[in-house]
């Protein structure tokens, strides 16, 4: 296969690494391999942060991203760092509220209410998992059921229900826009 390059970017503390970690688990479950790198600076609270995945069925030649297939942007701060890595085949998912000026170009861009929906679910911090659900819905990178398995394995048990709701919310946000949160919670 041709390697797939995915970036989660935003500000430190938004759970970008957790996103990459959970998606890595899901990819492993489907027998795919990852090379996972991240910004390595003191950015745990605020500041530009990113987590990158290069996905392949073997260990990729070059483990760092060079041309993004998928970019998730959760904060305006981080838009600039992906300049030059996007092309016409890239797919960009940006938070509607926190990214007022998403990257501009010929690529597909989806401006979606990750943070807004997270607040409605009762915790702003699951915006990352909502974005992950939406990414899988748009990108078809792994099966949704596999992603749910990985979420179960990758989040603390006491936050499991919230995260399952979040990943469902993200997925439905794309497949059936306008769906009510109550419906997702009960499903």
């Amino acid at each position: 296969m041709e390697p797939i390059e995915i970036r989660f970017s935003g500000s430190g503390g938004q759970g970008l690494q957790l996103c990459a970690k959970i998606l890595s688990l899901a990819l492993n479950l489907e027998n795919l391999r990852v090379a996972f790198s991240q910004s390595y600076e003191p950015t745990s609270r605020g500041g530009v942060s990113r987590s990158d995945l290069v996905v392949d069925d073997i260990t990729p030649d070059y483990p760092l991203v060079t041309k993004l297939d998928y970019l998730v942007v959760l904060d305006q701060l981080s838009v600039g760092i992906s300049n030059g890595l996007l092309n016409k085949d890239s797919v960009v998912l940006a938070d509607k509220q926190l990214v007022s000026e998403p990257p501009k170009g010929e690529f597909d861009i989806h401006s979606l209410p990750f943070v807004e929906q997270a607040i409605q679910l009762g915790n702003k911090r699951v915006a990352n998992i909502i974005a992950l659900g939406a990414l899988i819905s748009i990108g078809n990178i792994v099966k949704f059921e596999t992603l749910v398995e990985a979420v179960k394995a990758g989040v603390p048990p006491r936050f499991l229900d919230l995260n399952i709701d979040a990943v469902n919310t993200g997925y439905r946000m794309v497949t059936s826009p306008g769906v009510q949160l109550e419906e997702i919670k009960s499903s």
Partner: peptide, 11 residues
Amino acid sequence: DEVIGHLVETI
């Protein structure tokens, strides 16, 4: 190098 040190790979 630091890249290899902090890189996570499926092995």
